[in-house]
Write a protein that binds this DNA or RNA. Structure first.
Lengths: 144, 144
DNA sequence: CTTATTTAAGATAATTTTGTCCGAATAGCA
DNA sequence: TGCTATTCGGACAAAATTATCTTAAATAAG
């Protein structure tokens, strides 16, 4: 469904959001350990998310990653996915055709219209805030 | 969504089904040309599908691939996907956790329950017959 | 029974994705 | 200023996926 990079990106953003809600800036090392991901690879992904204005990075001692508290609710999963995997997941053809639309559909086009639109809506409507708070109360998990 | 291999597998099976409905056995070369796929790679995929009892292969002159007419309706997309990509697409965790279920869910688990179940149902209920007949009447396309 | 045609099967190669390493840049602190 | 913790950014490496090539095996037809 998502690439590994995107999985790490979502998990990392969720953890950073959770900590940011409590005013904590978190280091790469801590993030990677909390989400069980390879450190250096995670760094690249966080870097990309920072460039895409999804999170902020601070260099130097006591540096790390954070998200402005007031933005946590307006950042949606779709933003993260788009930054890392692009929009193929809901805009691309299930069979990989370059031109696949209602006029020239692949054999599965109609079958996927509903599913892809549900997925798109879900990603566009789910905020980092919503995702992080489940974690906070111990209802959901980022590793295992 | 699907791997390239799976995309080719679905497209190839659809074309073979269409031709089998008209009693035509089709060669690898013809299939690859009809679905715009690399010949040798397609051969591997067809071979796998044959081993999985989804289609039949016949060696030698006038050989090729075919599907028993009476089976075309009972072969579902889910069978093809399972043979090539496995069942991760509807059973795996969206965030890649090994253990992710209602009791120990990842933060996206609940969000994906409906989408994955819809996808699963769709793949399990869509037969090769249904997919091939759209092609037959020129309503859908396998390349472009 | 020989030849031509076609799939089978495995080795190899190219590409993409995933992952590592290391020096540079930045910032806090003594 | 100089030391240290940390991200930045690019080069490099490993693994997975996609794709090619070559030879073998099967089989229909002359």
């Amino acid at each position: 469904m998502f690439s590994k990079a995107c999985e790490y990106g979502i998990k990392a953003s969720t953890y950073i959001a959770l900590q940011s809600l409590e005013m904590n800036r978190v280091s790469l090392k801590e993030i990677a350990s909390e989400i069980n991901s390879p450190i250096a690879f995670t760094a690249k992904i966080l870097h990309k998310l920072a460039k895409n204005d999804i999170l902020e990075s601070v260099k130097g001692p006591y540096g790390g990653f954070q998200i402005k508290k007031e933005r946590i609710d307006s950042i949606k999963l779709a933003h993260i996915v788009a930054a890392i995997d692009g929009d193929d997941i809901y805009n691309g053809c299930a069979l990989g055709l370059d031109e696949c639309n209602a006029l020239q559909p692949c054999p599965l086009h109609e079958k996927f219209v509903g599913i892809r639109s549900d997925l798109k809506k879900m990603l566009e409507n789910t905020s980092l805030y919503e995702v992080a708070t489940g974690l906070e109360v111990g209802l959901t998990f980022l590793k295992r």
